[in-house]
Simulated scan of single mutants.
Amino acid sequence: MSNSSSSNEDQQASGRAGPITAPNNYGPVIVDSATYTLAPIPESPSEGPSLSSAVEALEHLTLREVGNAYIIDTPLAIGHLTDTLLDLPTSPPSLYLSISGVSITRHGSISLIQLLVLPTNLTYLIDIHTLRASAFTTAGPRGRTFQSILEDPAIPKVFFDIRAPSSALHGLFAISLAGIHDLQLMELATRRRPRSKKFLHGIAR
């Protein structure tokens, strides 16, 4: 058994918190931070070796956990994360995002971008407050940046009400979003009664 596995078992026995490194024979994993158990997620048959190696490289960074999410707050981490977002399935979309900040407009600020990657069922919190522009401009080993992912029309990305995030990303970081699926507009389009389409519903509705 590897030193990494032994260390994880020691932490589980003592109840101490600490970073978890997945064993090499696991694919993408969900980490239960309460018990430190590792549950393998079945990999898609269409998942290429490049995606598998990118996910493995990201896991080996021993990212900090907050609840069920991983914090991305270094250029190295954002670069490796970007590589895992390439070559993902597009139907249904693989990337689901939301943005947090203060007055999310071109005159406000962005603190966090929450990203769910559906095929791996992993959630990442990208710390824009710490990384600032480097969150979008740092290239991964395959040469792509997070900005290029956001601007790629061939990579579908799902938001709820894209208006404020689009304004903030463009005004603060010169990012022109493309390939966006807006759940708010999709919900509006599915309403059967014409009169009910006069107003948009908020996320609480």
Rank of each mutant, 00 (worst) to 15 (best):
N8A: 04
D10L: 07
Q12P: 02
S14L: 08
S14N: 07
A17H: 03
P19F: 00
P19R: 02
T21Y: 11
P23C: 13
N24V: 14
N24F: 15
Y26T: 13
V31D: 03
D32R: 00
S33F: 01
S33P: 00
A34H: 02
Y36M: 02
T37G: 05
P40E: 08
P42V: 07
E43G: 09
S44F: 04
S44L: 05
E47K: 09
E47F: 06
E47W: 10
G48P: 11
G48A: 14
P49D: 13
S50R: 15
S52Y: 12
S53M: 15
V55K: 09
V55G: 07
L61M: 00
L63G: 02
R64D: 00
G67H: 03
N68G: 02
A69M: 03
I72V: 00
D73F: 01
T74W: 01
P75E: 02
P75Y: 00
A77I: 00
I78S: 01
H80S: 07
H80M: 06
H80D: 07
L81P: 03
T82R: 03
D83R: 08
D83Y: 12
D87V: 12
L88P: 11
P89I: 03
T90C: 11
T90S: 10
P92Y: 12
P92S: 06
P93T: 06
P93R: 11
S94K: 06
L97K: 09
L97W: 08
S98T: 11
S98L: 09
I99K: 11
I99T: 11
S100G: 12
T105H: 15
R106M: 15
S109M: 15
L112S: 05
I113E: 07
Q114N: 08
V117M: 08
V117G: 08
P119L: 06
T130Q: 02
R132G: 05
A133I: 14
S134T: 01
S134G: 00
F136T: 05
F136M: 05
A139E: 10
G140L: 09
G140N: 10
R142I: 13
G143Y: 15
G143K: 14
R144C: 13
T145P: 10
T145L: 12
T145C: 11
T145I: 14
Q147H: 08
Q147N: 14
S148E: 15
E151G: 13
E151M: 14
A154R: 12
A154C: 12
A154D: 14
I155S: 13
